[in-house]
Amino acid sequence: MIHALAILLSCQLAGEVAAGALGLPVPGPVLGMIFLTILLLTVPQVGKIVQDLAQGLLNHLSLLFVPAGVGVVAHLDRLGPDGPALLAALVVSTVAGLSAGALAFAGMLKLLRNTDEAPRAGN
């Protein structure tokens, strides 16, 4: 587990350093994700080392957003009189954005006749 943690943190650190040094507009952890992907492609054995810890973190990714979420509620009054309008804009734009993205993706798959065996939601 310590080896896995060392690899994940090293990738994140490399991402932070690269983002800062090159003035890139991407967050350090996102660059770290790209670095770890490259590492996995070049040295596939790394997958076995990080697998358990990475999977454990991702299984409970929701948990990691709880502190920030509590912060939002603690400062909810800061939305002030604009609160209802902001919430309405959030609801409409989230529904619209999700729909546009999913329909565009599915539409392009159809257009390209991409019939890869990909998992589908059963309902």
Partner: peptide, 26 residues
Amino acid sequence: LLGPATVSLALPLYWNRHLILRTALP
């Protein structure tokens, strides 16, 4: 832990790389 968790997303990305490479346009 959000940072290391974001880095961990590389793993599902790597496992699904063949599906991903074929869906660049979508």
